[in-house]
Simulated assay, not measured.
Amino acid sequence: MPSFAIVDARIFDGNIWLDDHALIVEGGRVSAIVPKSALGAGIERRAAGGALIVPGFIDLQVNGGGGVMFDGDCGVEGLHKMCSAHARFGTTGLLPTLITDTREATAASIASGIEAARLGMPGFLGLHLEGPHLSLARKGAHDPSLIRPMDDDDIKALVSARAELPALMVTLAPENVTTDQVRVLVDAGIRVSLGHTDTTCETALAYAQAGATLVTHLFNAMSPLAHREPGVVGAALESGNLWAGIIADGVHVDPVAIGAALRGKRGPARIFAVTDAMSTIGTDLKSFTLNGRTIERRNGRLTLADGTLAGADIDMIGTLSYLHGTVQLPLEEALRMVGLYPAQAIGLDAAKGWLGAGSDADFVILDNDLNVVSTWIGGQAVHQAR
């Protein structure tokens, strides 16, 4: 694949802005970012067509998109539709996320993910299995009849899946999984996230000691931060080893709470953005089904008949705009929350979440109003706005 240079836009490399520079792409990677004046005469130059070049967005919690839900019937074609739908909104890498389902549906979903990995599907980073080993008290929209304790067969299936996937993340609750089971999963290279749990702060920190490194959608479906029992929220903010996803859509978490959490988070682990998106993204769907139950789409909310939130109706560029415009984060930090930090959270930051010599050529070109002009994965334009 011949090298080329993207020019005529400000470049954010994940750390600083570079003006009058060119992004040189070769073989699906960034070979260098150099002053435009240093470009050789023989290299192909491509005008960006926008104002900003930023690292591609990475979403670790994507239940669906393009009219498709990730479930036992999704298949490889469905995964491709999901990745393509989210690429329209700047997402260059995602973890399709399976909501609590049957053993059979889980096995079929894992098989689809393994095949997507084998094919090198653009945008596919691995899988996120959210359940079924959760807490009934904090089930959210998960089907309570399918929630259950983790057993030896589950562990064998997960360890086997991890061996064939580039990344595997599992959301679980201490109520249905032991610390010994967490250690087995972590030793196999699986990223363990605490979520949908009513456990105490002390217990959550003990699970972090056992190897859990993430928390799923901070504040939602977990024991809250109180003055005598800090809950999972308190553990997530206190532990420097727990990365925490958060849904920044104006529905799931108040912007004041987002700001307070960002100021209160102990590092080096950070809070990063997830969409928790459903099949509605990139479509005009008004409703869809989840485990046989109807989810209604109204005014930016997805809910069951009883009003329970069921995922989110937002994409990553919308999330970036919300973090920058409503939460009032500096654009640089908002960009890290949708790119660098999620890459770091699952150990993909050697090549993703930033731009520079040796990084993957996964980037988004934006206009000055933060609209997506084009999305690039591995140096290929996978979406271009009309």
Rank of each mutant, 00 (worst) to 15 (best):
Q380H: 11
T275I: 14
L146V: 08
T106S: 04
T213S: 15
A5D: 03
G126P: 00
N220T: 11
I114C: 13
A116H: 02
V7W: 06
Q61N: 04
T319D: 13
A116L: 07
Q209L: 15
A48L: 06
V34S: 00
L323Q: 10
D249Q: 02
G120C: 02
T319N: 14
S321H: 14
G120N: 08
I271G: 07
F363N: 01
R10Q: 07
Q328P: 01
G378T: 04
G356M: 01
R266L: 10
M337T: 02
Q328N: 08
A210W: 12
P132D: 00
P149H: 04
C74L: 01
I6W: 11
R263Q: 06
R103P: 14
L309G: 05
T283W: 11
A9L: 03
R293D: 08
G282C: 10
S321A: 13
L323D: 12
H142R: 02
D360Y: 02
L370H: 13
L218K: 02
G353R: 03
T216H: 04
A345Y: 10
A208Y: 06
R45V: 12
E175P: 07
G231N: 05
K156W: 03
P230R: 08
K36Q: 12
A107D: 13
I16S: 05
W354D: 08
D198S: 12
I33Q: 00
L366M: 10
L119R: 15
A85P: 04
V372L: 15
G75Y: 13
A157M: 11
T171C: 01
R88A: 13
W376L: 08
G195C: 10
L340N: 02
A273L: 13
V373K: 04
I147M: 11
A345F: 09
T303S: 02
A257W: 07
N241G: 06
G65F: 00
A343G: 03
V34C: 10
P268S: 12
E332R: 05
K81F: 15
T216A: 06
D315N: 15
D8I: 05
P132H: 00
L95E: 05
